[in-house]
Nucleic acid binder design. Structure first.
Lengths: 206, 206
DNA sequence: TTTTGATTTAATCAAACGATTAAAAAATAT
DNA sequence: ATATTTTTTAATCGTTTGATTAAATCAAAA
């Protein structure tokens, strides 16, 4: 049986091409022929490895989601670290990952929007039942009166907003500020230090 | 000539149906037959009024963008109001508008991503040449040392992040918090008062 | 009533697209 | 060298989909 490695390699190449095109254009606008072209292989081979466009998409989607939440859980569930440290790690991890995969947030949002039930089913987001220590910590702060009397959900939402939105609005931000990709990435890296400060300011002064 | 009002009315109904479906499923995943069904009219009539799917989409897109930036410019360019007041007005205006049109941000982002040049061309975003007084005001604060020495762009990005992202992530937020639409909207309304506070905290303590 | 325009019905076209197939060719292993 | 597996080529099928057409129906105006 020829080339176990080569088999995996081309399969992986096709998946990688599919990931690129799906992420850029979405499921409906992506033609299997686009994936073939992007991968360098031809149309027939794509159905040789994956049975259909849907199957291929599901695989790519699943891996994208895994990638999107991977690492985050390790940080958020850690029972030993301080809240402040968790926030710093989370921001750093997320922003570095997003600079490497700028299209990921848009892909995830579009996927969950186009079919929410399927999304929450296919992705083991709920099956991960490790207790979210970070949630406890923020709730504790609220109970101790160490933060403004607001719904703690706002804090998570704000963290996600400040981290994720710039990558969703990247085309507009770049255009308005006439930024190159490098300048944009530099701006995002600045936020690794700034966002934790902002969150802290919210918790104290908000 | 029969029913000038009815003519405009059905044309408007079709556009409204198109807006709904395009906003929910995006351009590629939307079939003209879907629009027909949603509008209550039939397929032939859609091409009777609008020549093609593309034309209809361009009209809807243009109106959506107009709606998205309408009102904002009036606030941002106002030469008489204080910065603090501008922020409060902007947040209030945006959140109320987004509660009424929750799908708008996703539509805009997808549109600009799928064809950035076309987007910035078709939408008169640049042609609006009224000086952005708000930008001046923030730049002034930075020059006067009244805010932390950071790139003022972060401030706009943060405002937009805190306002827009929750509507982009609405399906996830609702799902994670098991919220109804009403509960979600209530949470968003809380942010009308909170976001200006948070921004102020950033400007002082960040 | 007649006329005119709006809307429906039904059928059809052409192109795009996902999918499949068989056979040839290329690459790799034995 | 032979066998086996991978990849290409090329053709084709069936369906979906955007678009168009002609004729029928309906509503309202003149």
């Amino acid at each position: 049986m020829a080339t176990e490695e080569t088999q995996q390699s081309t399969e992986e190449k096709i998946k990688e091409a599919a990931r690129k095109v799906f992420t850029r254009k979405g499921f409906a606008a992506t033609r299997t022929r686009d994936i073939a072209e992007e991968s360098g292989y031809n149309l027939a081979l794509i159905n040789y490895y994956f049975r259909s466009k849907e199957k291929l998409f599901e695989i790519v989607m699943f891996e994208n989601i895994q990638h999107f939440v991977k690492g985050v859980l390790d940080i958020v569930t850690n029972e030993t670290t301080e809240l402040e440290s968790k926030i710093e790690h989370l921001v750093q991890h997320y922003i570095e990952m997003l600079i490497a995969n700028p299209g990921l947030p848009m892909f995830v949002l579009n996927t969950v929007q186009s079919d929410p039930e399927q999304f929450f089913k296919n992705t083991g987001i709920n099956s991960e039942n490790r207790p979210l220590h970070m949630v406890k910590q923020i709730r504790q702060m609220a109970e101790d009166g160490k933060m403004p009397p607001i719904n703690p959900v706002h804090i998570y939402v704000n963290m996600m907003s400040l981290i994720l939105f710039p990558f969703l609005g990247a085309p507009m931000i770049k255009h308005k500020g006439s930024m190159s990709d490098e300048q944009f990435n530099a701006l995002m890296r600045e936020r690794i230090i700034l966002i934790p400060r902002w969150i802290k300011a919210m918790l104290q002064n908000g």
